[in-house]
Write a protein that binds this DNA or RNA. Structure first.
Lengths: 212, 212
DNA sequence: CCCAATCTGCCACGACCGTTGTACTTTAGC
DNA sequence: GCTAAAGTACAACGGTCGTGGCAGATTGGG
């Protein structure tokens, strides 16, 4: 049974997400989280065993929420495996980026986890990966494989194709915007996504008639 | 004029690079760096103004070294713009990954900078970007443009093409290996690179004759 | 309304760590 | 070999912060 009042607990989780996302684990202070939540520091220790426990509770909660959101986006945009791929893949990337902005705090925490992967217990890292990224990747892989079966895509390994798609769109945006730290003009965002999807579909090898 | 003896200064820089890379900025202690360098903590404050100053000195030094290494790799592997691209791009990616392993501490520090981009003075971030990534990207962009002029590649925007190449190879490896935290079997490394280069060249759109 | 759980404010302990002062020893160059 | 710069060992200050204790206020269910 969880300790304390659920309302307070939810407020603490939300506030901790904001503070951890903004300041990072090390910089984030229990006092700051308590103030943000409108709660006394003592109450935080009523609900959680300490800073580590609070952090992992926040991450597991937001991980599930984000994974749900992203899998829904995938299902919505790639529901028709016979549809022309360019338009759907561009639209999906746009919404994906929007989700990253909406859950910016979550992704900031995840980046910290990845950076400190060496200092994080391997078991926690593994369970996080299973409930989050692996779930989303499986959904995306599944849809790309369906598109391949329809002849919409030419895919040898659907999982690698999913990786490549995300790298050329989402990761490209992340790199250009310093993971959201530097805001990107909407036009540039669109340009990165469309050129990324074009590269994903067509590649950079000269066409046969070009070499003439 | 730099303070202190150059030998000690070099030892401090090297040790600080190792400790910062291994433990991260926050976790890294001046005492640990001093011990690693075989130097008293007081000597560190003789050479540098403090932890921040030491960190930025380490980063600027290794940034120049890494940028040199990578631009040399680019020049060596893409020296012939008329050569078949697949082989050269795969070989370059392999050596690039090897360089990332060799300078693992540097890249660990860079990742920290990127994560904490919000908390780093914008001027320092900008000069770092100019002397490091921007230099390397310019070199790679230049070579891809040359290949495009030779008809080896079909490129609209050489800089985006350079990004896409790195995303599909280097970034793919980084993501799979948690930035080097989880060692990757050599076979998997090769598979990621070759499939990445194949995607870069050929994309995923069905060939005309496939749709028959 | 009452009681038990919960929450609050405040204080304090203890650990960690960056930084500095000081007195002493070592090193390098003239 | 002398001298000034550089390095060392050690202790201490100061700040931050996680954590817990405690007494009293508050809250919500029976």
């Amino acid at each position: 049974m969880r300790r304390g009042r659920p309302g307070k607990r939810a407020a603490i989780l939300a506030a901790a997400g904001r503070v951890f996302g903004r300041d990072g684990y090390a910089r984030a202070g229990i006092d700051a989280i308590a103030a943000e939540a409108g709660v006394s520091t003592r109450t935080i220790y009523h609900h959680f065993d300490g800073k580590d426990d609070l952090f992992s509770a926040v991450v597991t909660a937001s991980t599930a929420q984000v994974a749900d959101t992203l899998t829904e986006l995938i299902a919505a945009h790639l529901n028709d495996p016979a549809a022309p791929p360019h338009r759907a893949l561009v639209a999906l990337a746009h919404d994906w980026i929007a989700a990253q902005a909406e859950f910016a705090d979550h992704f900031a925490m995840v980046r910290q986890i990845n950076i400190e992967a060496t200092h994080v217990p391997a078991a926690a890292l593994h369970t996080w990966h299973e409930t989050g990224p692996a779930r989303v990747m499986a959904a995306l892989t599944n849809r790309l494989a369906a598109m391949a079966r329809q002849g919409t895509l030419r895919v040898f390994d659907a999982e690698r194709a999913a990786s490549h798609y995300l790298l050329l769109t989402v990761a490209a945006i992340d790199a250009a915007s310093y993971h959201g730290a530097v805001p990107l003009p909407a036009a540039e965002t669109t340009a990165i996504i469309t050129t990324g999807v074009t590269a994903f579909l067509d590649g950079y090898r000269p066409r046969a008639q070009d070499t003439a």
